[in-house]
Design a binder for these strands. Structure first.
Length: 277
DNA sequence: ATGGTGGTCGTACCA
C-alpha cells in the first residue's frame, strides 16, 4: 500500500503532471493540497479514468484539499470540528485497505477470506503558510496548529492506524533547511512552529521520512524565484506522519523530484511512503 | 536592488 501527498498549486493547471505522476508512482491514496477550485469544478471523470475515486473540500482561488484513492472513502470529514474556519484546509476519511502483497506492479490484494481488510484513517492537512513571523497570518497559523494538535490527540485514541499527511509549512529540523542560518527564526522554521511539529511526535506519530536513511539536503519545496530548484535552495515541509501501528509496516518514504523538473511545475514535490499491508 | 516567480483573476492577493 502506497500513500502520497502533493501540494499541486492549482489542480486545474497541474492535472497533466498529476496524470503522468500517478501512472509511474501508483499511489493507492494520494492527498492533494492547494487544489484552488470549487467542488463543482473538481475533475472527477478525469481521475476516475485513472482508477481513482475522489473526495474533496474546495474553495475558489485559494486552499482546497482532496483525497484520491483506489478504495472507497467513508466517514469523510471536511474540517476540524472545534475550529470555525472558512478556509478549506482539512479533509479526513477512512479506507478499508485490503491486505496485500508488494510487487513491482504495486500492491496486489490477497483474495483469501481471512483477515483481509484493515481500516486506515487518513487526515490530509494544508497548514496555513503564516506569511511572516509576527504577522496576523502567523498568529492564525499558530492557533490553527494548536487546534490541530488537540484534534489529532483525540483522533489517535479513535483510530489506531492513523496517517496525518500534507503540506505542514514547517521544516522540523535544521537538516530540513538548505541554509539554517538564513532561515533561523523565519516562518516555517521558527521555534513556535517546530514546537507544534514536535508535539505531534510526542503524541506518538512518526515522521516516515526519518524512519529511513536518507541522502542529505532532500527537500519537498523550492521557491519559484531565484532559480531555487536548480540550486536546491529548498525546505522539507511536506510530511507523512503515522501512528505506531502503521510505523511497523512502513518500508520506504521518499521525495520524488521528477515532477518539479517539468515545464510549469508545482513548487512542491510529492512525498510517497510504502507499507507492507 | 526591499528584488525574484507563479496561480488566480482581471486587482491585488497569496504563496
Amino acid at each position: 500500500m502506497k500513500i502520497a501527498t502533493w501540494n499541486v498549486n492549482s489542480l486545474r493547471v497541474r492535472l497533466p503532471h498529476l496524470v503522468e505522476w500517478v501512472a509511474t508512482a501508483c499511489p493507492d491514496i494520494l492527498a492533494l493540497q492547494e487544489t484552488k477550485l470549487t467542488d463543482d469544478f473538481f475533475p472527477v471523470q478525469e481521475l476516475a479514468a485513472l482508477g481513482y475515486q475522489a473526495v474533496y473540500a474546495g474553495q475558489k482561488s485559494y486552499n482546497g484539499v482532496a483525497l484520491l484513492s483506489r478504495f472507497e472513502a467513508r466517514d469523510v470529514v471536511r474540517d476540524i470540528p472545534d475550529l470555525d474556519d472558512p478556509q478549506r484546509r482539512v479533509l479526513s476519511a477512512t479506507y478499508a485497505v485490503p491486505q496485500g502483497i508488494l510487487t513491482d506492479a504495486g500492491t496486489v490484494p490477497i483474495t483469501d477470506s481471512v483477515g483481509v481488510v484493515q481500516d486506515v484513517r487518513v487526515l490530509n492537512i494544508y497548514v496555513p503558510n503564516g506569511s511572516s513571523v509576527g504577522s496576523e497570518k502567523y498568529s492564525y497559523k499558530l492557533s490553527w496548529l494548536d487546534k490541530l494538535c488537540a484534534y489529532i490527540e483525540a483522533q489517535l485514541r479513535l483510530y489506531p492506524r492513523l496517517v496525518v499527511l500534507g503540506d505542514f509549512n514547517i521544516a522540523p529540523e535544521d537538516r530540513d533547511v538548505h541554509d539554517p542560518k538564513i532561515w533561523e527564526g523565519q516562518v516555517m522554521v521558527s521555534e513556535a512552529e517546530r514546537h507544534f511539529f514536535n508535539r505531534l511526535l510526542s503524541l506518538g506519530l512518526w515522521d516516515t521520512f526519518r524512519l529511513f536513511e536518507q541522502q542529505p539536503e532532500l527537500f519537498s519545496w523550492w521557491d519559484y524565484r531565484a532559480a531555487a530548484f536548480r540550486r536546491n535552495l529548498g525546505l522539507r515541509i511536506d510530511h507523512i506522519l503515522v501512528s505506531p501501528a502503521l510505523r511497523q509496516h512502513c518500508v520506504t518514504c521518499s521525495i520524488d523530484k521528477t515532477p518539479r523538473k517539468l515545464e510549469r511545475p508545482s513548487d512542491h514535490a510529492p512525498v510517497i511512503a510504502e507499507f507492507n499491508i
